[in-house]
């Protein structure tokens, strides 16, 4: 009696598992893509369908884009498995990879391997153009602003270059720097004179010069930083298990294969400010990790 009942329960459970697992394989698996809010995030938010449809055509999966508007939230969403593939900055990518061991660095933009920030100053501040890193000391006692707290090009690397010549963030006027929140805001605030100097992503600076948003009688570049690596695509460690063997590689290939010759692909690349995506490797980000540890952004 008892054993037949047990059998019944077992077979019931077995059959229902079959049903449940079948249920999930019937629907196309869903890849959830995210991006940190960095350059022109509002356009990315509106035009993400370009990228999702490209990826879903190439890989035969459903792609959903989830815009996360806060850097630490994006890192956390990756750790907790809410996002499968994320466009991270240098620092946030390293934070996410350390919190999710096994996460895979897939690709970066052609510009990311040799990324730079520019220090800019308002002309009224009389801050001279700097030829040598040690001359950054002229910024002591000035009103100075970074971009977002977790930005690699707007905060982390610039702070590192300042610290290399012994300038602490408490050396600025008011004993603290500002955090404008974005590269564009940094430019606007330095150009207006609210801050005498600031630092931003060189790519954003150049884009603003091209769009004639920079008034050269008010603001100029005083120093370009040495090169470092920045943004990259980071994927969950278990994508192959969920989407089938070799999926991560196929995904990487799709990203690397985006080319300007196709109209939609060229639009996607433009959205990311890239000419193309190129391979990226974990070891390239070791320096960023070290800097972040030194500055307390990684424990």
């Amino acid at each position: 009696m008892n054993s037949s009942r047990r059998n019944f329960i077992f077979s019931f459970l077995f059959i229902s598992t079959l049903f449940v697992s079948n249920g999930t394989t019937w629907a196309r698996p869903k890849l959830i893509v995210g991006a940190i809010p960095d350059q022109n995030p509002e356009r990315l938010n509106r035009l993400y369908r370009l990228l999702s449809s490209e990826l879903s055509n190439e890989l035969d999966i459903t792609v959903k884009y989830v815009p996360v508007t806060n850097y630490p939230a994006a890192v956390t969403a990756f750790r907790t498995g809410g996002l499968d593939l994320v466009w991270f900055g240098g620092l946030t990518g390293v934070q996410a990879r350390l919190q999710k061991p096994g996460a895979k660095v897939l690709a970066q933009r052609d510009v990311d391997a040799n990324f730079q920030s520019v220090f800019i100053a308002n002309l009224n501040s009389n801050i001279p153009v700097i030829k040598n890193q040690s001359e950054l000391r002229v910024l002591k006692g000035k009103r100075f602003t970074f971009g977002s707290e977790s930005s690699t090009s707007g905060r982390l690397m610039p702070q590192h270059f300042l610290q290399q010549v012994d300038i602490k963030i408490t050396d600025f006027k008011g004993r603290r720097p500002g955090f404008s929140g974005s590269h564009d805001a940094t430019l606007a605030l330095v150009q207006s004179g609210a801050y005498e100097a600031g630092v931003l992503n060189k790519q954003v600076w150049e884009a603003n010069v091209n769009r004639k948003k920079v008034n050269s009688s008010k603001v100029r570049v005083i120093w370009e930083t040495p090169i470092y690596v920045d943004y990259h695509w980071l994927a969950q460690p278990d994508l192959d298990k969920r989407f089938g063997n070799g999926f991560t590689e196929k995904l990487t290939k799709t990203l690397l294969g985006l080319s300007k010759s196709s109209i939609t692909q060229s639009k996607i690349l433009k959205l990311f400010g890239a000419n193309s995506f190129i391979p990226a490797f974990e070891h390239q980000y070791k320096d960023i990790e070290n800097v972040a540890r030194k500055l307390g952004k990684i424990k």
């Binding site: 995210g34 809010p37 350059q39 022109n40 995030p41 509002e42 938010n45 989830v66 815009p67 996360v68 508007t69 806060n70 939230a73 969403a77 809410g82 996002l83 929140g181 974005s182 564009d184 805001a185 606007a188």
Partner: peptide, 24 residues
């Protein structure tokens, strides 16, 4: 809500503020 990936009008406001796209 944007912080949690839900979108919403706040996401629009925050993102357009970041890029100083005042018309949008």
């Amino acid at each position: 809500l944007g912080v949690f990936g839900m979108g919403g009008i706040g996401t629009e406001l925050q993102l357009t503020l970041q890029s100083l796209e005042f018309k949008e």
